[in-house]
Design a protein around this nucleic acid. Structure first.
Length: 271
DNA sequence: CGCCAGGCCTGCACGC
DNA sequence: TGCGTGCAGGCCTGGC
């Protein structure tokens, strides 16, 4: 399940293979992703040169010619660079074929991902226009989080996963960040003090940065057919550890459901 | 066989 | 009004 760190690792892996390359063609094997791939996508990008590969939230932004390819990996997607003659598997839905003999190939068994096109400013795309700040940017700070949460009765875990609060914090890192910050996931967002907002912002930054750093070490394996980028072994503190002893205090980690999503927390360390 | 996981958009009902 | 909120549904496949 690509969360922000996996998307960032993917971006870094793509940069050296894509930037400066001309798009030879595109191959669409199955256009029925979350939103269908536009039929005229090829006409728009074939022959253009990739200028840059950026990221906003969990969207990859590939600057091509005068527009942008916007790629989302959904929950089961990956985008990897392969020699373009590599036989396509059942879930290989899209290839961006480059003049280097390599292709960026989107594999996505569950097809929750998306490949979209936006002329000019990609941030003006409706999906990107109203997003909160990046978690690793200076704009996301205790002041912002504090202001965004005042008066809100919803649980902090739910609020953290709302892309109007901060982007890129998915289900796993929401639990992990709250563990690091020592905050109980059901706490009403509006009741969290300024000091604890500061702690939570730091926890989110540390959690995501550590995951990116861990994934960065796998980057040399980015090209190839084995090993998805960023799917590094993580030693989670809370996520998926129901009943297992807390790594800090030893008390069993408890599961919880919030808005049909699994949450994990330590009843001792998180209050 | 049924259920669950995941991201995230969309729509609904409700209360203030 | 219009918003915040909590629901549920949808998309899809693989794994248990």
């Amino acid at each position: 399940m690509p969360e922000l760190p996996e998307v960032e690792i993917t971006r870094r892996g793509l940069v050296p293979h894509l930037v400066g390359r001309r798009v030879e063609t595109v191959v669409v094997r199955n256009r029925n992703l979350r939103w269908p791939i536009a039929r005229d996508l090829g006409a728009r990008i074939i022959g253009s040169t990739v200028r840059t590969v950026e990221r906003r939230a969990k969207y990859l932004l590939i600057g091509c010619g005068s527009g942008w390819l916007i790629v989302h990996l959904g929950m089961s997607g990956s985008l990897r660079v392969l020699p373009h003659a590599t036989p396509a598997g059942k879930h290989d839905h899209f290839d961006l074929v480059l003049d280097s003999g390599m292709s960026a190939r989107l594999t996505d068994p569950r097809r929750f991902g998306a490949v979209l096109w936006k002329a000019q400013d990609p941030l003006a795309h409706p999906l990107l226009a109203d997003l909160a700040p990046e978690p690793l940017s200076a704009e996301f700070d205790a002041g912002w989080l504090h202001a965004r949460t005042r008066g809100r009765s919803a649980a902090i875990k739910t609020v953290l996963m709302d892309s109007h609060t901060v982007v890129g914090v998915g289900n796993i890192y929401a639990s992990e960040s709250l563990f690091r910050a020592g905050i109980h996931p059901t706490t009403a967002a509006g009741k969290i003090s300024r000091e604890r907002c500061d702690r939570l912002v730091q926890a989110i930054r540390e959690t995501l940065s550590a995951a990116i750093d861990a994934g960065g070490s796998t980057l040399r394996d980015f090209v190839g057919s084995d090993g998805k980028p960023g799917y590094f072994q993580q030693n989670y503190y809370a996520y998926g550890r129901s009943g297992e002893p807390c790594r800090v205090c030893g008390k069993p980690i408890r599961p919880l459901r919030q808005g049909q999503r699994a949450t994990f927390y330590c009843p001792q360390c998180q209050r």
